[in-house]
Design a protein around this nucleic acid. Structure first.
Length: 507
RNA sequence: GGUUUCGUGGCCGAGUGGCUAGGCAGCGGUCUGCAAAACCGUCCACAGCGGUUCGACUCCGCUCGAAACCUCCA
């Protein structure tokens, strides 16, 4: 199978063939969270999006180094580069060390990402641990002549940079517009141009988070950490840089400028951006105050939620949309995702129960019409096609909705075979199982998160109980059999009677 | 105002110049002690107006509407 992976590059706005700079290695950097609040649904989108990218690249055999930062310093509360550090503000309010806040929320982030089955990246560097690298980069930019120092602060000279390179190439912005349209804000008088951004800020006396530098005791500007850390861990040229679309400007635009100025060339080959999650048509975001935390989703404790939703429901919900589309949150949509996922998992369980079957030798002439005739010993072309479709979908800019649609088609075939409406070969069963293992579990990262209480004891008890119930059914003692089923339902154990006995699962 | 992007059936959400997306919900049927599940069939669509074309939901233009970014945000 040829795996020609095409990915959408924001820089060119086209799908491009993915050719890593140094195969079989692939480097990927993704902007991680600023740890000053509980992770919400919006944080889940990029984490899951790039988790799937990570998993697929690994599946294709690349040796991937995936770097996702933790921002624990440098983001200012408001008013551009003037103002207070978010984490410091939170620390003062809660009477804690800033690092205590960062640690607490970083831990919370990891807990919830683990629940969503997001693989841990190869490296998760923190901005506060890379002050030296950031200072070095400021020096490089100063030496290159694309920055200037004023009163202990250092600013990037956008106007001068624009004469040599293109500031705005990623976001499609024009410098003239930026200069005329940037708002006049307090504390901008140090800058030569409103479009300039801070590389290093001198700390005011009350500012808690501060580090010594050649220019002042201060802290790094908020675009710098990603440039410094990506360079440190992935080199001055690497393959993929990802993040939310809301970071396109000014964050990623400024990263490009910083690297170009400091290193003399751009460092990123492919820029990937995931779209936003909306609620009532608006972006779910911290600043709008319309976000729902992952904790609230899992517990159902939020006014907008009709019920709790499991981590896998959230993951599946996000993967049902393409990563470059907005996805609108609603209870209806989440419930549909929950049911769809349940159907998919039930289909897989059915497949496992069917297990390897002896090949049916004489081909039944009365097969279901949709079951295509098979030549001797050949695999079912539909199933081969499913597998090819899944690869084609992933290779087309990670089109997870199409992969899922094909998995539902696989479930249809499985159920149809289970109902004895058609027959497939042992090899086909194995191939179907492989498709689920590779795509649903391996690449999309779905896990079976139900039935957490299952143990050997429970399995044994259930076997006994269902055997007793089966006896009552055989004697048409419906009272007893219904009583058992209802009692089990109260314990959230659902029993379904099929042709070949009863099956059960814990809700 | 500028930049970027989008408007698909009851809801969510793919995709393509002519051929079924898929899920959830609905309707009819099969199966079944009942229930559930499953299977089969089925209804509902491409914002509006022009243009290009043998043919457009798909390309182009305009209109209307929506969002993101231009200030921290995933």
């Amino acid at each position: 199978m040829e795996n020609q992976l095409f990915i959408h590059n924001t820089l060119t706005r086209k799908k491009e063939l993915f050719e890593p700079l140094n195969p079989p290695f692939a480097g990927m950097y993704v902007c991680g969270p600023t740890v000053y609040g509980d992770p919400h649904l919006g944080h889940a989108r990029p984490a899951i999006t790039f988790d799937v990218v990570f998993r697929y690249l690994l599946h294709l055999g690349y040796k991937v180094r995936y770097v996702r930062n933790i921002t624990d310093v440098g983001h200012l509360v408001a008013d551009l580069d003037e103002g207070e550090d978010k984490i410091a503000v939170k620390a003062r309010v809660e009477q804690l060390e800033p690092m205590e806040i960062a640690q607490y929320y970083a831990d919370r982030y990891f807990i919830f990402m683990d629940a969503l089955n997001v693989k841990r990246p190869s490296i998760e560097p923190r901005a506060s641990g890379h002050i030296i690298e950031q200072i070095l980069m400021v020096s490089q930019i100063l030496e290159a002549g694309f920055a200037y120092e004023v009163n202990g602060s250092v600013y990037f000279d956008v106007e001068k940079y624009s004469k040599a390179y293109s500031y705005g190439k990623l976001s499609g912005r024009v410098l003239d517009d930026l200069m005329t349209n940037t708002r006049e804000l307090e504390g901008q008088e140090e800058k030569r141009n409103p479009a300039d951004f801070a590389l290093w800020k001198k700390a005011q006396p009350e500012h808690i988070m501060r580090w010594p530098s050649p220019w002042s005791d201060g802290f790094p500007g908020w675009h710098l950490e990603c440039s410094a850390m990506s360079t440190k861990y992935l080199g001055d040229r690497f393959d993929i840089h990802g993040g939310g679309m809301d970071l396109l400007f000014p964050h990623h635009e400024s990263e490009i400028a910083q690297c170009q100025a400091a290193l003399g060339h751009e460092s990123v080959k492919y820029w990937l951006h995931n779209n936003m999650i909306t609620i009532n048509g608006q972006k779910m975001g911290k600043s709008l105050g319309n976000f729902i935390t992952l904790d609230e989703f899992f517990t159902g404790k939020h006014a907008s939620l009709h019920q709790p939703y499991s981590a896998m429901t959230i993951r599946f919900f996000i993967l049902q949309a393409h990563y470059r589309s907005t996805v609108d949150f609603s209870n209806e949509a989440l419930q549909a995702a929950e049911k769809g996922l349940k159907k998919l998992m039930a289909g897989f369980e059915t497949l496992e129960k069917m297990g390897p079957q002896p090949r049916t030798l004489p081909k039944n002439k009365e097969l279901h019409p949709r079951s295509l005739p098979k030549k001797g010993g050949e695999d079912d072309p539909r199933i081969i096609e499913l597998k090819q479709n899944c690869y084609a979908a992933m290779n087309d800019d990670f089109n997870s909705p199409i992969v899922i649609a094909n998995l539902f088609e696989a479930v249809r075939i499985i159920n149809s075979v289970n109902d004895k409406k058609e027959t497939i070969s042992n090899e086909d069963l194995i191939l179907l199982k492989e498709i689920f293992d590779v795509f649903l579990f391996g690449i999309l990262g779905i896990t079976n998160d139900k039935g957490g209480d299952r143990s050997q004891v429970v399995d044994g008890l259930m076997k006994l109980i269902l055997a007793i119930r089966q006896k009552s059914r055989e004697t048409k003692d419906w009272g007893t059999s219904d009583q058992i089923r209802e009692a089990l339902q109260i314990l959230h154990i659902t029993v379904k009677d099929g042709k070949d006995g009863s099956i059960w699962n814990i809700e």
